[in-house]
Structures are given as C-alpha cells and as structure tokens.
Measured scan of single mutants.
Amino acid sequence: MPSETPQAEVGPTGCPHRSGPHSAKGSLEKGSPEDKEAKEPLWIRPDAPSRCTWQLGRPASESPHHHTAPAKSPKILPDILKKIGDTPMVRINKIGKKFGLKCELLAKCEFFNAGGSVKDRISLRMIEDAERDGTLKPGDTIIEPTSGNTGIGLALAAAVRGYRCIIVMPEKMSSEKVDVLRALGAEIVRTPTNARFDSPESHVGVAWRLKNEIPNSHILDQYRNASNPLAHYDTTADEILQQCDGKLDMLVASVGTGGTITGIARKLKEKCPGCRIIGVDPEGSILAEPEELNQTEQTTYEVEGIGYDFIPTVLDRTVVDKWFKSNDEEAFTFARMLIAQEGLLCGGSAGSTVAVAVKAAQELQEGQRCVVILPDSVRNYMTKFLSDRWMLQKGFLKEEDLTEKKPWWWHLRVQELGLSAPLTVLPTITCGHTIEILREKGFDQAPVVDEAGVILGMVTLGNMLSSLLAGKVQPSDQVGKVIYKQFKQIRLTDTLGRLSHILEMDHFALVV
C-alpha cells in the first residue's frame, strides 16, 4: 500500500459497493488471473465517493441489488447463522422517566444476534452475496479491517462455511474481542490505534497488504460494500417497522461504517417519512454534520465500534436529520445504567446512543415513540467499562463513588512517597548505550525526554532486548525507535489509591 493515498477510480455505471474482489474501477472485475494482476490496485480507499443510485421515491424494481426479506425461524435451526436477525424490541421503562421523557422509549437489542452484535447481519450478508456472485469459493481466505464486531461476525460465518479468516484490528480494541476471535479460529493482526486510516500501518493498510500477498484472499470491505446497508434496509428496518406496527417518530443510532443508519433510515424514509433520524458520533470522530460539531482538541476516545477519521463510502449522511456528539463518560455511564436499571447487557456504544436519545427525544410528546439501536453486548468489555477499576483509572468514576473498604494508605498523596527525580535518556542515544546505562543503574525503564525536557515516551529494558533479539533494531539504532509513546501519567497530588489502580493494569506510571 502506498504512503500517498491515490484516488480510487470510478467506473461508468453500476453501484460502487459490489461485493467481491475490487477492480481499479471499484466494481467486480472478471477475466484471467493475468488481467486481474495487471488491473487490481494495491488498495482502494474506504472513503471513495459513493456511486449508489438510491433515491427517495425511486421504484424498488430499479435497484441493481439482490434483495432479501426477513424469514421466520424454524423450530430447529440448521446452523447458528440462522440465529442472525429477528432481534427483540424491548421497552426501556426507567431511564426515559428518569430523564423526563414523555414518549415511549424502545430498544432494538442487536446483541441477541448469534455473534453478539449488529455486525453479524452485514457479515453474513457480505459472505452470502460474495458466494452468490462467485467471488468467494471453498478454501478462500477472508481478510477484514475491523474494530472487532464485524470480525467476530465474519469469523463466526467463516467457521460454519469453512473459510480461512484473518482479522486486522487496532490495538485499542478489547482483549475479549481478541479472545472470541481466536476461539472462532480467526487469525488476528493488531495495528497502532493512532495510525491514520490511509497510513500503511493502519488496520485498513495492513489488511490490503495481506490481501496482495495471500492468494485467493478477499477483503469484503464493510466500508464500501453495498451488502452492509442492504442488510439493514432489507431486514433490520423491516423488523423495526413490523415490531412497531409502522408507528415510530424517531430513530437514534450510533454511527461507525454508517451501514446501520443508512440502511434503516432509507427504508424508514420510504415507509415512515415523518420519522426523524438521529445520528450519534463520538467526540474525536469526524462523521457528524455540520462540520463545526467535529471541532475539538480530542483525537482519541475509548468507546469502541463507532466514529472514524474518514467518511466511509457506505455512509449516506443525507438521510440523517440531526447529529449529536457523545463523550466517553456519558457513554459508559449510560451503558452501566442500562445494565443495572433495565437488565440490558449492552456495550458502550449503546450507552452513547441512549445518552443522546434522552436529549433528542425531549421534543417528542406522549403517545409518540423513539427507537434506539443497541449494537453489541457487554461480553466484549468485561475488563473495560464493566470494571470499576478501569473506570477509575480512566477518570470516568471517582473514588467516592465506590463504597468498598480501602487499605490505610489509600488516600495518601503520591508526594508522600518522597520520590527522587528519575533517570532520563535522550532519544538520540543508541539502544546499546541505553541498555548499558539501565543495567549500570539497576533500572528496568526510563523516560525519554528531548533537550527541552519534554517527555516523549518510555523505554524499557525488556522491550529493547526483545527488539534486538527479533532483529527489529540494532544496538547502533537510536533509542527513539523503541519508545512507548502511550503511558499513564500521575500527579504528586493524586492518591496512592489512584496509582494502585493504574499499576494493576500497566507496568509503570510516570509522575509529573
């Protein structure tokens, strides 16, 4: 994948999101292997301009796509893939009243899908469409860049269908997702969380590099694949309309690839034109409109599966009536509230959605109805927002919020430890010299600072030695090549209790 991002070429006709291997024109390309080798690009942008032909009021008969309808489940399912879809609609009884809503608040519980998330729908649909058009064949390999849930859905379907599955996901995604993927037989590649989507090191860039190296491999490409919004247009939206008897006044959905909100909203605009569509985008993402909503100094966020630093091709923002931004604290607070007060075992993005819903639905009156999409299960986040310690460490809970008995030293300040200034190293000294210094002084790690004293990161003896043994660096290389740029900081005025929580999850903390 090139470091400079080429513009994806656009073909003359058809839909841009065809499933299957992508040609340089962004659509299915038939021909000899030699032709494909000559024409197939190194990668295709996940934010390529959409060429979708959908228009409100256009006859369904003019759609270029294969459409399906929700099917009634048999008493005995032939395999677990038949437990994807037909998820329950559940009334939220307490939270709406707590925040003064007059309307009825309903939750579409997508964590009841077989793999635990709304992404099971698009995973199965992308595979079925690729099999139907002859792209996927027995023994082929599926590769997908994902925040985890699409990966789980694909790995689940691949396990049943017999495909090899490789999932490329950023490091910030939970260990629970990784464990589930491994249990399903998927191979996992992790990428830096802070890598831009168009960087060769991003999950998108690495996935395309693997595709170019592995024979008979395919990126189904949830960011561009029409099967993504079509899955929701054909099934999720129809289920909502049936469950609500066609009567709903507002739908609120958090947005990642945009397939969920695009597919549902398009069908609702056709069948229930008075329904307002509300999009939820986390602070630090750029999906919301108008652009002024996205202006923030924050560039990272903890909530998973929603928000991006690019506009995915499948996201149709014209069908969203209003956007709201959400933050991590309210997302996790509301997710825990949904679990504790409503018994809905949902993930953090569901918290984002409901946090926005109780604001947006203030305009609705008694007798009206708001539906929220709860995308995934708490299963993926047992060591994250479900953990009091994690919430404390991230600053989303305060010590006084917890009532468990603490040891005698818990409320003492870090400054009472009488710490001395640490050994520091410059980023320009060599790895070999740094190892000598650390061994001589008896230290395992040291902060790396520039000549102005600005902290650049941390270097550890173990990481340097393993990097040297693996051949990633040489003793003569500058130590700046092996620094940890993500590390926890703590102030002298913070409590030892807070430091204790940090050290339970990290090997060190830097006192500043």
Rank of each mutant, 00 (worst) to 15 (best):
S3A: 11
T150N: 02
I264T: 11
E239T: 00
R161K: 14
K102D: 05
N225L: 02
D35P: 10
T87F: 00
C109G: 03
R121Y: 01
T68I: 15
K172D: 02
P41T: 12
I261M: 09
T150Q: 02
W208M: 08
G20V: 13
L184S: 06
T235N: 12
K172R: 09
D120W: 07
S63G: 03
H17A: 04
G256N: 00
D140C: 07
A38I: 04
V118N: 07
K119W: 01
T87Q: 00
S61H: 03
L56D: 12
S175F: 08
L241V: 14
T135Y: 15
V118E: 05
M169T: 07
C272S: 09
L230Q: 08
A114E: 06
R58A: 12
S217P: 06
H67W: 04
I143F: 06
D245N: 12
C103L: 05
H22S: 04
I261S: 02
K39C: 06
A237P: 07
L154S: 02
V10N: 12
L220T: 00
D120R: 04
L251I: 12
D47W: 01
A265P: 05
A253Q: 08
D129H: 08
M173T: 08
K97F: 15
P46C: 04
K30R: 15
D221S: 01
S23F: 12
H22V: 13
N194W: 11
G139H: 14
G185Q: 00
I84D: 08
E62R: 03
S50H: 05
A183C: 15
V255R: 02
L251Q: 03
L42F: 11
I240A: 01
W43G: 10
K177R: 02
S254V: 13
G134W: 07
Q243K: 12
Q7L: 05
K247Q: 15
H66M: 11
Y163V: 00
I76Y: 09
I95W: 00
A253G: 03
G162K: 00
K98A: 11
K267S: 02
P78C: 09
C15L: 11
N149Y: 01
S3E: 10
G153N: 02
H17G: 13
I188Q: 00
N228K: 01
A130E: 03
L136T: 08
A114K: 06
I122C: 03
V189M: 10
T193S: 05
G115Y: 07
G148E: 06
R58I: 12
